[in-house]
Amino acid sequence: MTMKPGPKYSAAVLWTLMILGFALVPVLMSSSYQLNLASHVLVWGLFAVAFNMLWGVTGMLSFGQALYYGLGAYFVGLMVEYLGSAWYLPAIGIGMLAVAATSFLLGLLVIRVGGVYFTMLTLAFGQLAWQITFKWYDFTGGDDGIQGITAPGFLQNPIAYYYFLLVLVMLSMWILKRMAYSPFGLMLRCVRQNPERVRFLGRRVRRNQLRVYIVSSLFAGLAGSLMAGIDNSIHTDMFFWTTSGEVILMSVLGGLNQFFGPFVGAVAIIIIEDIVGAWTEYWSLIIGSLIMGMVILFPKGLVGELHHLKLRMMQLKARRSE
């Protein structure tokens, strides 16, 4: 597994290109659909990258990250609904605090178990949260969801909101990336590869697992709360296991061992979903076959394969020049 930071300049180029690409969306394209699509991509990208900190880096496959995504969204939705849109920005912060508290408490329970049991326990908590949101009709609106969530002031303008979103998402990704390559990130990778050894070295496995669980959940919550302002409506779907499943798909498709893999996976899945969905009612057959093909042909994920291809090219060049 290769997760070394490449040469400094190439990473900088990549970041600039990505930020520039997303920043230009509102300038180049006038349609608010494309803006909406780009926003969805950003939010899901952040969610998937945060999720991958947990799985790809630390090896903890959670099937319940939708819990935090939904929590972030519902904090914003409910506070705007009951207290007014001035509470939009504070709600993002309060929501993140709530996510941190919840993930700390639940984390204590779920990290005690490993492997597939961790996966199942997170699924169970996620579904419990979904069921409660769904049932608590008088407060959460149940299956009807919450509509009319608008950000205050200048953020009401979709383009302004988009840039707000872009800044927050890129900032979060930068933080996550720094974290992934910090000593903490290295420790997490050791936790995945050889937990026994980590113990022998006098480091605490559980504590690191709990930390990364909270970090990952925190950014999942942020992604959820940002989503509330894009569609101006939220829905119990955001808590449902399919939402947790979707980030798993994105991560695997993009490549688990690459920092940007899940982000690329998110781009690919959302765009494929939209194009194929617009084209035929048999989207499920086509998307299923398409992704199945990619899974079988690209064992390292999209970014992983690209990386692999680049290495091969470099080797070839080196051999020729010899």
């Binding site: 349609s31 608010s32 659909y33 494309q34 909406n36 699509l37 969805h40 969801g145 989503m227 569609d231 409506s233 829905h235 779907d237 955001m238 979903e273 939209d274 969905g277 617009a278 009612e281 989207w283």
Partner: peptide, 22 residues
């Protein structure tokens, strides 16, 4: 034009925006 809403509100919103603006 007919599109499958997939009974997902967030997806349907995207489709509706595409219909209106594209």
């Amino acid at each position: 034009t007919f599109t499958d809403s997939k009974v997902k509100p967030a997806y349907a919103v995207r489709v509706a925006k595409r219909y209106i603006t594209e």
